[in-house]
Nucleic acid binder design. Structure first.
Lengths: 402, 402
DNA sequence: GAGAGTTAATTTAGAACTAAACAAAGTAGA
DNA sequence: TCTACTTTGTTTAGTTCTAAATTAACTCTC
């Protein structure tokens, strides 16, 4: 309700860095426009950032009718973020630059159900950091399949990992001494999409993932919707039938229990579309080969996803839907079911809502997690408590001001 | 992303008025705490508001261990807001004080499909205002069944009213010279709930209405979620079956086509639970009398609502669900179907989510619309353009400052 | 090639806000 | 009654930001 300007000390300084990191060089005037700050302030802040060595002045841009702009770029030494993707049987790591580009990556086995899982995880993380080239690590972003209660302490509840009330954030912070942000993995992807992807040009959009699980990240007015307990976007457990198959969450008829990877494989085995020991790759191959049962399984899944997403669209009214995840490799078979179901159930004036399918790489999940670190210092709401401030401090580094 | 302090000129002044209006008298220290502003600023702003005659200093509060607080109250002359509820065949008006209490109300026939509907509406509004006691009218809040693209211009699309692209806001503003805020009627209720109802103590909650239509207002981080085109919360058109009955929107299988008042009545007639010319009152009477078919119709509707709402809860993760609308008069018959379906489809850690049924009066819709006017000057986002500023100006009145 | 127009960046004066020190007005305990 | 403590409210100095005027650097047109 009330507006206050406490703790905003260098949020705008950070916003400048974020913009330059995400979108490349820009002029002072351009920064003023996109950040909705006065040119006067930009002049002032840029002067300080240049003095601190965080920015560099680049060549002049060609004039377009008036005084040509002097472009500003991020000093390359700004630092890296580390993204960690945690799943039941392994962890994946990436190290990314301030522009979101992956510098290096790794993947290691990991048993989330072991009693010593935190110690194990810490060891793996230390190993990955130690293998780096020594560039300042701004912080650690961790993506988990499940809901995260407070981004700061990082309290994780995850059926998939068998975790309840695990204070992962605090544990990792103590062990590594780094700023740590823990978040649901789909929400992390939504953040990445907002910073570096299609979401850059949209304040309201939906990120949907299909694969082992089904999930959504809801971006509203430029921010990821977390809800009262950090559990927003759990559309995998949207009930689509009263008497549907049992889901991993214990309920019946969840969307995920119908169209998750496990459900598709089970259906395919039952119908004989793939051998009894076949997997999702076999199903995709069968569909590619034109086998009716396989094609039908994908089409039905697409239809159910389309119908449910139409409802979700009516609920949150996004301007764009982005579909991501391992499952998108077979999207050509989902699409014939998805498109008619999705469009026909949308209200007329929203029928033309764009749906974009993004290419998917193994490291995308971890990349999303890393984006959390890059987004956090620029999140005015400060949802993760001190972490944003700590990351900012590491960003500015040991430079002495004034 | 970036923080800026433009146009915040008297937002905090307004926040003080809002707080005192909504929650009654408070001390300076208390205001500083709840508004998260410094005591120094409160002192400063209160000094000016007292000089302007908008606030009055009340008696001292009993000390609780230290210097006793001098309470502050709103000057009673602050003004009234007028709420208008527009439906296909009539309009309802209320005039409310800054505390949200209804001063007077009226209801008149109105044909939304007539070609001269704007002129008609203007005339009815003028009549209602003229019948008042002359207290300053701060502004006009209009609730419509449909989606509103920009709160400022108030562009309305409504299947129920047969309106597409009607610039109601601009038209009414020109005709009345008052600040005008047009909004979807369920969103208006959500605003009212946030200002004066159960939502005061929750930043994330869901308002659900059942009756002729079915709708939802989604409050996220204290603000009503409007989405990319103002259409968020349209859960009435959530598709719940591929081959369900045809809905008024033209699609098949919408939730509203299953459990809206029209659908219930149609079902009841088909099953012989009420006479062929019977209405919703007959259905309720039949259920009260213990007739199986009537009870079953309500229970099925409750089950479908419960299942769908469970999914919506997973999507936006509210801390509270408030059920409102004409339909709640029969809630005792919805409940046996709703409760099991809703709870059983929620994820375990969210099973105990509170669902509150609010009593409903005829004028509640219009009261919600009036709340728009009272909320607008205190909406820092300024979603309705100039309207908030205009209302603030009327609130401060002709007093000359300094 | 001399204005006229446009866009970029800086300077200056001042508004909005806060932190921290202070003053005021009470209670509670010896 | 004197001292210690608590809570409320004000003052002061300083920070962050903006608006508006100004300077700078270019293009376009005649």
């Amino acid at each position: 309700m009330a507006i206050h300007s406490s703790n905003r000390t260098d949020v705008n300084r950070s916003a400048i860095l974020a913009r330059l990191g995400a979108d490349g060089p820009a002029s002072r005037a351009e920064l003023a426009r996109v950040l909705a700050l006065s040119p006067a302030l930009i002049t002032q802040l840029v002067k300080e950032l240049l003095a601190d060595g965080l920015l560099v002045e680049l060549e002049q841009a060609p004039s377009n009718g008036g005084r040509p702009a002097r472009m500003l770029g991020l000093a390359t030494s700004a630092g890296h973020a580390i993204g960690v993707k945690v799943v039941a049987d392994h962890v994946a790591f990436v190290e990314v630059g301030v522009d979101g580009r992956v510098v290096r990556s790794a993947s290691e086995p990991f048993d989330a159900t072991a009693s010593t899982f935190i110690a194990e995880l810490v060891e793996r993380i230390r190993g990955f950091i130690a293998a780096g080239d020594g560039t300042t690590v701004l912080g650690l972003g961790v993506g988990v399949p499940g809901s995260v209660d407070r981004l700061g302490s990082g309290v994780v509840d995850s059926a998939q990992l068998g975790w309840t009330g695990v204070e992962l954030g605090d544990a990792l912070r103590r062990a590594t001494g780094l700023p740590v942000v823990v978040e649901n993995n789909v929400n992390a992807l939504a953040v990445a999409e907002r910073l570096f992807g299609l979401g850059r040009s949209h304040d309201n959009f939906l990120v949907v993932t299909i694969g082992t699980g089904v999930g959504a990240g809801v971006v509203v007015d430029g921010n990821v919707l977390r809800g009262a307990s950090g559990g927003a976007g759990e559309i995998g457990h949207f009930p689509v039938a009263d008497d549907g198959p049992r889901c991993g969450c214990g309920n019946d008829g969840c969307l995920e229990a119908h169209i998750g990877e496990g459900a598709l494989v089970r259906d395919a085995r039952d119908r004989g579309a793939i051998p009894p020991d076949g997997g999702i790759d076999d199903l995709l191959a069968a569909a590619d080969a034109g086998e009716d049962d396989a094609i039908r399984i994908y089409r039905e899944a697409g239809g159910l996803l389309g119908r449910t997403l139409a409802g979700v669209v009516h609920t949150v009214d996004p301007a764009l839907v982005v579909v991501l995840g391992e499952g998108t490799t077979g999207w050509r078979h989902w699409s014939p079911g998805f498109e008619p179901a999705f469009r026909s159930h949308l209200l007329r004036h929203r029928r033309s809502l764009p749906v974009e399918i993004e290419t998917w790489q193994d490291e995308s999940w971890a990349q999303g997690a890393a984006a959390l670190v890059l987004a956090m210092p620029f999140d005015a709401a400060g949802s993760a408590g001190d972490q944003g401030r700590l990351i900012r401090e590491r960003l500015v580094g040991p430079v002495v001001r004034r």
